[in-house]
Design a protein around this nucleic acid. Sequence first.
DNA 1: TCTGGGGTCCTAGGACCC
DNA 2: TCTGGGGTCCTAGGACCC
Length: 397
Amino acid sequence: MDAFYASVELLRYPQLKGKAVVIGGGRRRVDEAIRNLPEGGTLADIPVEDFPLLKDYTGRGVITTATYPARQFGVGSAMGLMKAAKLCPQAIILPVDFDEYRRYSRAFKKIILEVAPLMEDRGVDEVYIDFTDVPGGQREGGRSLARLLQKAIFDATGLTCSIGVAPNKLIAKMASEFNKPNGISIVYEDDLEKLIWPLPCRKVNGIGPKADEKLKRFGIETVGQLAARDRDWLIANFGKATGAWMHEVSWGRDDRPVVTESEPVSMSRETTFDRDLHAVRDRAELGAIFTRLCEQLAADLQRKGYVGKTIGIKLRYDDFRIATRDQTIDRFTDDAKTIRQIGGLCLKRVPLERPLRLLGVRVGTLAKAGSPEALAPAATGTHRAAAEPVATTASLF
DNA sequence: TCTGGGGTCCTAGGACCC
DNA sequence: TCTGGGGTCCTAGGACCC
């Protein structure tokens, strides 16, 4: 989906169309502008001048999405709001409304599923679709079906998307970025040299900043330069799995199937504080935040029907270093008190000298609530007492 | 200019078991 | 006399993605 969060916001604030808008923050609301609305007015009636501007924003946070006009100024996803304010002070800032984005996410996925049942969910704004056996999926190399999907999605939601069609997920993902927004791009197997090899390695889904940096140190900038290296050389320098994988992707090879169903592995809640907090000085506040996170997480688990038995915490210190601790208990739970109690033990095992900027809680090793595994864990798994030493360590502190 | 929240997967060492 | 081999689970950290 093109600039998904921002595009959804533009549906309810059409007066902002064509303007530089960023989505982020979340603490400062447009509530005041809404309160000032005359009787009977709608969101679309809020004057453009009444929206909060990036330059007036104070507080932590990053941009999740920027409209294309905002991107002209170099503003983009994951950028800190303070930096974005320097680049584009006159941009309008809107708070994140994840519930709304989820509604539109469900809507566009439903449209796709009606046409092409083999769809893999890749998050709120992205999917893979297997065109192979969809009627008409092979016409014009897939272009005709891609057009049909774009139209159906637009008619139902008013949102545009960009589609890449290719022999596999790896290339399709890259192709989807060739023609944004509202574009279609077809990449055939024979196009590898011409269309894929000139791309920077970073464009490969799975090569992030670290791997890219290392590749650059070897003088490898493009996918083509990666393909030119020996498979054995890549394995020697990047490890068996990563090296072999890099070799495969550089030659456009990817045999991963489109996976239509999957079970969650973990669920978590975390929050960045308005200001850094000290474990001692702000103990009460931290305790209250932690309890709330545990309650939210328990509610998430219960609503979705999952229980888990690995409970963990996450801290981010003021210097941005991260520490995690977890403990596996001998039964599955979705109970806030249990999560809070085990999480509390985890917190006792982590250094708390530095100021904290984030606290999170996580439940992993999930099972469906009421499933045989969740009900009788000792009967199905090997009977072990491996969690004991950890509990002992915790009690020593 | 300090940098969100919710995820997945991988690695690696140690415990423990057969 | 140093000390098999394989497997799973647990834990901590890190890369990466949307």
